[in-house]
């Protein structure tokens, strides 16, 4: 790892095709800054992206990366990290990718406490498919597939994470660059599954959850007396979805990542020394 890495080293030469003003620009910039400021460089970083507007991030960032199938980014990130613990693994997804098609993996990745960072670009809409309700869309939200307003209440991702034993649960706002970067950085530094849900407004298809809305509604936990180490307090905040919190909602300082519990610390890219010959004793087990 080089200490002189600048966040622009994580930028590819491909120009983003996100709509002008899209929250994803800010979200991505914060991710790149957080990676650089934690001493990572593109050669030791692996970015995994799913499908949706968020999925394009692997193309716009420069690092080792896989842009996979819809909803399965977390399992890929899990495999990468376990196979080579030396890599910094950052998984990016959207609210559709992470909380709809991939919600099962979300819960289990949280539960396993894999030492990776998961950044969800939550715009509360399906943008790439041009404006359908997402799992985080507000109840009553009118879209092409819900002309009379959605009847389902939104999921509460932080509540899912807390219930699954989450050890780092945070929320940020893409346009508050400094705060967003700081939160992603803390997630990277967290020993375990660092989860950051990012309000990342869609300027084209969501006229409700706008920059103006968030600027008005956001309560920064840093400006309150919230203690992220206090589970009960975290639970109360998380179970109050009427307030748009940013900051660390919950962090378990005693978090032990999966790899530590399983004793996984080697780069598995190498064939173990003398593997075939050593396997000879496996034959003898069958006597």
């Amino acid at each position: 790892m080089s200490s002189d890495t600048h966040f622009t080293d994580f930028k590819s030469d491909k120009q983003p095709t996100w709509c002008p003003g899209c929250g994803d620009f800010g979200t991505m910039n914060g991710m790149m800054k957080a990676l650089a400021e934690t001493g990572n460089d593109p050669d030791n970083t692996f970015v995994v992206a799913g499908i949706g507007c968020s999925g394009k991030i692997g193309t716009y960032m420069h690092s080792y990366a896989l842009h996979g199938v819809h909803g399965r980014a977390l399992p890929v990130g899990t495999g990468v990290k376990l196979a080579n613990p030396n890599l910094e693994v950052m998984v990016a997804g959207g609210d559709g990718d992470g909380y709809s098609i991939g919600v099962g993996h979300f819960i289990h990745a949280v539960r396993r406490n894999i030492d990776i960072t998961y950044v969800v670009m939550d715009n509360r809409i399906y943008g790439l498919t041009k404006g359908q309700a997402s799992p985080t869309s507000r109840q009553g939200f009118e879209t092409a597939t819900s002309p009379d307003g959605t009847v389902e209440p939104p999921v509460n991702p932080q509540a899912l994470a807390l219930a699954a034993g989450g050890t780092f649960i945070a929320q940020s706002f893409s346009s508050d660059s400094q705060r967003h970067t700081e939160l992603v950085k803390q997630a990277v530094e967290h020993d375990g599954f660092g989860f950051v849900n990012v309000f990342s407004p869609c300027v084209t298809f969501n006229d409700v959850d706008t920059y103006d809305y968030f600027r008005d509604a956001i309560v920064d936990l840093d400006e309150t007396d919230h203690d992220p180490g206090n589970y009960q307090a975290a639970r109360d905040k998380i179970m109050d979805p009427s307030t748009e919190h940013i900051g660390i909602l919950y962090q378990n300082e005693d978090s032990v990542p999966y790899s530590d519990r399983e004793g996984i610390d080697e780069n598995m890219a190498d064939i173990p020394e003398g593997a075939p010959e050593r396997a000879d004793r496996l034959v003898r087990e069958f006597y």
């Binding site: 996979g68 399992p75 990130g77 495999g79 990468v80 376990l82 196979a83 890219a269």
Partner: peptide, 8 residues
């Protein structure tokens, strides 16, 4: 797939 991308 992830593990294989990592080289294992």
């Amino acid at each position: 797939l992830g593990a294989a991308r990592a080289g294992a």
